[in-house]
């Protein structure tokens, strides 16, 4: 693999370094890279331009918007006020829950306004993320270990795990809403009489169970792919040396599967931090299931600019989490992707 890539890349940019090619380079190689570079820029240009239009432009636009006042009716005069520069007031609206007071200045946002919900939405988002990703990692690991064994019907299991993954989240949400209906199969099977969408803890767990059902297969498949790269001889050798099953898991499986596992956890974490469909449809954000994404959507129709500030905050939160993963927890996505990690295994 590495030979196809030419000089072995040492580190991707995600791990903090610049692409460095080690070793002496001949003049011919430089020329080859230059001509390939020309080719590459032509081939990559359409993708880069398209992504610049659909991603970079909206980010910049959102940042610009977030420093503008929302146009609207002035609560004091009843007259229409045009926007104008807002400074950081849109950000303080969310972070410090300061709403504009009639007659200028700011007051603490009254309960019930969107501004007062920022920290609870942040809490809900992280609660969902931590609980679902933990559950999915544990369950996914277990499923992956089972699927890695040889037994008759293994391909049936591997096919079955793709079913929850293939069902659209909107359908999943409606399906679990029906399962968790008061007279539904959920209460019947477990002989409970829980009003699932009626109060905080059941509502949150309805979302968590539905999300775990839908996304554990993805986690399991990523971990399974990692498990399959561990050579069987390593286990044989450990067995000969008298290692117990638990020792084999802890000393061989875990360290060797860690790179794939970290990337899977990173993907799922970033996905969970932007969770929208499930709580939006399943619980409509009630009973403390409003995530940051739902809060942004609720704000859009009340004022773009304030919504832009909130979506920028959300983006920064997700970015920080991704950064922590890549920098401190060793989830090296680019290195994994480029195959440089393979040489180590």
């Amino acid at each position: 693999m590495a030979t196809e890539l030419g000089p072995t890349p040492v580190k991707g940019p995600a791990s903090g370094g610049t692409p460095i090619h080690h070793g002496p380079k001949g003049v011919g190689e430089d020329n080859a890279i230059a001509s390939q570079g020309k080719w590459a820029s032509w081939l990559l240009a359409p993708t880069i331009v398209a992504l610049a239009i659909v991603i970079v432009y909206p980010i910049i636009s959102a940042i610009v918007m977030s420093f503008q006042k929302d146009a609207g009716l002035d609560p004091v005069t009843g007259l229409f006020t045009a926007g104008g520069p807002a400074g950081f007031s849109n950000y303080t609206n969310w972070l410090f829950q300061q709403c504009a007071a009639p007659g200028g200045g700011t007051v603490a946002c009254p309960p019930g306004t969107l501004g007062s919900q920022f920290w609870s939405a942040t809490g809900t988002t992280f609660y969902f993320t931590i609980v679902t990703v933990t559950l999915e990692t544990v369950l996914g690991f277990w499923m992956a270990i089972i699927m890695a064994r040889t037994f008759r019907g293994r391909s049936l299991v591997r096919a079955a795990v793709l079913v929850p993954w293939a069902i659209p989240t909107a359908v999943t949400a409606q399906l679990w809403l029906f399962i968790f209906a008061f007279e539904g199969i959920g209460n019947k099977l477990f002989n409970t009489t829980i009003l699932w969408t009626g109060s905080e803890i059941p509502a949150r767990w309805a979302v968590i169970i539905a999300d775990t059902w839908k996304t554990t297969p993805f986690m399991a498949l990523l971990i399974l792919a990692g498990l399959q790269m561990i050579p069987a001889e390593v286990y044989e050798a450990a067995k000969v040396d008298g290692a117990t099953a638990w020792q084999r898991f802890r000393m061989i499986t875990l360290p060797l599967v860690k790179p794939a596992l970290m990337v899977a956890i990173l993907f799922r974490t970033l996905d969970a931090l932007r969770m929208f469909d499930l709580p939006y449809i399943l619980t409509e954000g009630s009973n403390n299931t409003t995530t940051l994404s739902i809060l942004v959507v609720n704000q859009i129709r009340q004022g773009f600019n304030s919504a832009a500030a909130l979506s920028t905050i959300t983006f920064i939160i997700i970015f920080i989490v991704a950064f922590i993963f890549v920098r401190f927890l060793g989830a090296n996505v680019v290195e994994q992707q480029t195959g440089a990690g393979k040489g180590k295994k």
């Binding site: 890539l5 030419g6 000089p7 890349p9 991707g12 940019p13 995600a14 692409p19 080859a32 890279i33 390939q36 570079g37 080719w39 590459a40 820029s41 081939l43 990559l44 993708t47 880069i48 992504l51 659909v54 991603i55 432009y57 909206p58 980010i59 636009s61 959102a62 918007m65 993907f267 970033l270 996905d271 931090l273 932007r274 929208f276 940051l292 994404s293 942004v296 959507v297 859009i300 773009f304 919504a307 832009a308 979506s311 920028t312 959300t314 983006f315 997700i318 991704a322 996505v333 680019v334 992707q337 480029t338």
Partner: peptide
């Protein structure tokens, strides 16, 4: 192909795939 900034481009594209849709929706 081998070219400069390859890993920057890869990082950009991977980053884009994890980009939260909610950050696009407002603008």
């Amino acid at each position: 192909l081998n070219f400069r900034f390859k890993y920057l481009v890869l990082g950009f594209i991977l980053g884009a795939s994890m980009f939260p849709g909610v950050a696009l929706i407002t603008p």
